[in-house]
Design a protein around this nucleic acid. Structure first.
Length: 492
RNA sequence: GCGGGUGUAGCUUAGUGGUAAAGCUCCAGCCUUCCAAGCUGGUCACGGGGGUUCAAUUCCCCCCACCCGCUCCA
């Protein structure tokens, strides 16, 4: 079994093997930012590819999309991020604890409104000035707060090099909104019919209050999101479907079942847009064995499309208020919103409606790390410890390594030829240095599923050995059967 | 943001007010016909910046990063 017990061991493992490095390390590092090394980028690419294949390419009812990170400011007004990602924070002078102003409760009040609904920045500014009766949730002091200060959870940047007419933009805090904004485009160009999904993988950015815990909560991160549009009333069925489907995706890629679970959100834990939500959690082996979220599957109902219909109606207001999002409120929803610009026409029933959305939203970085940690293993071989990564073949950074047994008798040349042929099909690695046993072990550490060795017998009968990473067993395979043999074993 | 801790080579550790040791790894060569063998040689480090001092990796200050615990976590 894996021997990793602390986060530090995971960090060390990632660094040692060239999976994940601290960003800008030569300058002392940049908090919460990480880079993927040579093996890490292959692993992460494989995770992406596995998700894309499962969510898009193997299905007839899902199409892909790749949206820009910068989007029209109104997108974030409509989605709610512009308001809700700009919370006001006040600091308790007694204990220096920072708390969201809208989470503070009055002295006499019970904690009944712990999950106060979010309010706009302006409203909060107007109503939150009087903190004299508010209670610090940490130390219980009353009215000991600093002036509320805005806490921007979205990254801001300027679009337009000319500062006079540049516009403040936000880096997207989720990829989902790009999908909603393109819902109509996809409908109009693909002939796809409900129920169907749109999938996207890409970077998102959130100015989290705290990051910590290696790459579990970083400010820049990669998401794989699927928005699955379905007819209202069928949403609960699809929610169950995606719950099961997404859970099994991890299991099928080798995550040990005892390390994975589904956790339903409590009603008071739900985001404002969600009717139901469940997390796929992985038991990371640090601390006391914390379960950490890899993916959330939410029933977003028709919330987002309806919000964007309101956003479209608000556009003029935005222009008229000098493009200042804080000065405007979203327009009211139209009476006949069900037949609005983002509605769907059901051919069979000849009616229009706003579809419901089931959203499986996975963290690529988190799951990459989960696959890495889950694959880590140590075992005793002839009194020595063998370290290996038991990656599923689809995820292994290197699929096949090719060696000459020794560096003579023409073996390197034959091995090179095999390598040159195989690398057209899989990511391969060639090595002829040192003892073959050491080369095998190096590949074990990288998680390479198979090693091909050209030996003396190859010169006689053109067969090579194929050595299995997990069992260390070897079989002889004819070189002209090698590609087929590996394809079958690697399931690619 | 608060409290505590940590920072010496790729990794794991040692050590010192006079610029640093070892094991593993890595590289080169020899040897080697299947699982980290052996021999020889070699590369590589005191997180960054100030201060005190003749001299700082060591003492002091500031900064950075990471870990643990709070807080936070649409």
């Amino acid at each position: 079994m894996a021997k990793i017990t602390k986060l530090e061991d995971i960090v060390s493992l990632c660094k040692r093997r060239g999976f994940i490095f601290q960003s800008s390390e030569i300058y002392g590092g940049l908090a919460s930012c990480y880079d993927y090394g040579p093996l890490g980028v292959e692993l992460k690419n494989s995770v992406r590819a596995a998700w894309w294949k499962d969510a898009v390419q193997m299905r007839d009812d899902v199409v892909g999309l790749d949206c820009s990170i910068l989007m029209h400011p109104m997108v974030w007004k409509a989605s709610g991020h512009a308001d809700k990602f700009a919370d006001l924070i006040a600091e308790c002078k007694k204990c220096n604890t920072r708390t969201r102003v809208d989470h503070l409760t009055e002295k006499a009040e019970e904690a009944e409104e712990e999950h106060t609904k979010h309010i706009s920045l302006d409203t909060a500014m107007a109503t939150a000035q009087d903190l004299s009766n508010k209670v610090c949730p940490n130390c219980g002091s009353v009215g000991q707060f600093t002036e509320p200060m805005p806490f921007k959870l979205m990254f801001e940047t300027q679009m337009g090099a000319n500062i006079d007419d540049s516009m403040t933009m936000h880096l997207r805090p989720e990829t989902a909104q790009g999908i909603f904004a393109n819902f109509k485009n996809v409908l109009d160009t693909t002939r796809i019919k409900i129920p169907f999904g749109i999938a996207q993988i890409g970077k998102s950015f959130r100015n989290e209050v705290t990051t910590k815990a290696f790459i579990f909560r970083t400010r820049e991160f990669e998401q794989a999101e699927l928005e699955f549009f379905c007819k209202p009333g069928t949403d609960e069925k699809w929610y169950e479907y995606w719950k099961e489907s997404r859970f099994n995706w991890y299991i099928n890629l080798g995550i040990k079942k005892e390390n994975l679970c589904l956790r339903n959100h409590d009603p008071d834990e739900l985001a404002h847009y969600a009717k139901a939500c469940v997390d796929v959690e992985y038991k990371f082996p640090f601390g006391s064995g914390d379960w950490q979220e890899l993916e959330g599957i939410a029933n977003r109902t028709d919330y987002d499309l309806r919000q964007h219909q309101r956003g479209i109606r608000t556009l003029n207001k935005w222009f008229e208020s000098d493009r200042d999002l804080t000065k405007i409120e979203l327009s009211k929803e139209a009476e006949d919103y069900q037949s609005g610009p983002l509605s769907y026409f059901d051919d069979e029933q000849k009616t229009r409606y706003i579809p419901y959305v089931i959203e499986p939203s996975a963290g690529i970085d988190r799951s990459t790390l989960a696959f890495l940690v889950d694959a880590y293993d140590e075992e005793e071989v002839r009194g020595e410890t063998r370290n290996l990564l038991r990656f599923h073949p689809a995820l292994a950074p290197v699929k096949v390594a090719v060696f000459p047994l020794v560096k003579r008798d023409g073996m390197p040349e034959i091995a090179q030829n095999i390598y040159n042929d195989l690398k057209k099909y899989f990511n391969c690695f060639y090595d002829e240095k040192g003892a073959v046993g050491r080369r095998y072990r190096r590949q074990d550490e990288a998680g390479t599923p198979f090693c091909i060795t050209v030996d003396g017998q190859t010169l006689q009968d053109t067969t090579v050995t194929v050595r299995d990473r997990d069992s260390m067993d070897q079989v002889r395979v004819s070189t002209d059967q090698l590609l087929n043999h590996l394809r079958e074993k690697l399931e690619v």
